[in-house]
Amino acid sequence: MIPAAFDYVRASSLTQAIELLRDNPDGAKLVAGGHTLLPALKLRLAAPELLIDIRSVAEIKGIEIGETHVKIGALTTHSELSASEPLNNVFPIFRETARLLADPQVRNRGTIGGSLANADPAADWPAVVLALGAQLEIVGATGRRTVPAEDFFLDIFTTTLAPDEILASIQIPKPKTGTRYAYRKIRHPASGFAVVGVAIAVRMLDGVVDEASIGITGATNHAFVGKEAAEFLTGKALTRDNIDEAARMLSENTECLSDRYAPAEYRANLVRVELGRALLELSQ
């Protein structure tokens, strides 16, 4: 319940935070909302020597609706994502997802950057940024780089972030008119994390799918893009048969995780059912 002792610095800029990371290659951890790190520290599952609090770093805060892209600062809390009218006017999936994420108190404090960087295999935002084709802006000692969300998640709790890099923002290309979204999730009754979560973006044109994109979380070691199913749907009408086929395809191509609560077959079933239901919602 009480973390092992550590030192603490409140960084005022990205540069300062990165320097601190670089100077403490083994023992430093970033903290923003703290809702992933602090529970681990309290159970002494982690014992960093230094905590770098980046909540005061203004340059990675806020939501900007640009001409071509929407830019979300990594420090944006789940509640802010849910509350932002400009953001949800463009991407209503943020409110839909935030509503299903953890609980109100956690949403008031936890950040999207923390959630993505932590890469919990059952977190919600990874599925959403995948479905939205987001680019993740990463800042490090050697400069800035942008990584497509699809390449960001590598394994359970593992991303492409180097130890001295910070996830700065999420940049999402603005959608074509008529794109619709859905996020569906089966919550673990205790943790609130996704047993399986499905985020989809679909644009219909002349009665057939013009573009489709699918992000899945909870099912495997890390969130992933359901490419094959999306490609299958493209150019087709969202009929019951096509939906079922896409859902079956995604489910069968996914090597699901198994745990005490949910065996792999159950997760695979949820991938099928939840994708099917999400598509059905959008077909109506």
């Binding site: 903290v31 703290g34 309290k42 609090d53 909540r55 109100p104 108190q105 956690v106 008031n108 404090r109």
Partner: peptide, 27 residues
Amino acid sequence: CDTSQCGACTVEIDGVAVKSCTVLAVM
């Protein structure tokens, strides 16, 4: 609890409800 589940420690920080077991005093 010690995993931020139970909410018994909920307080308001700057006007919103937060679990005070998951915030450092320095923060």
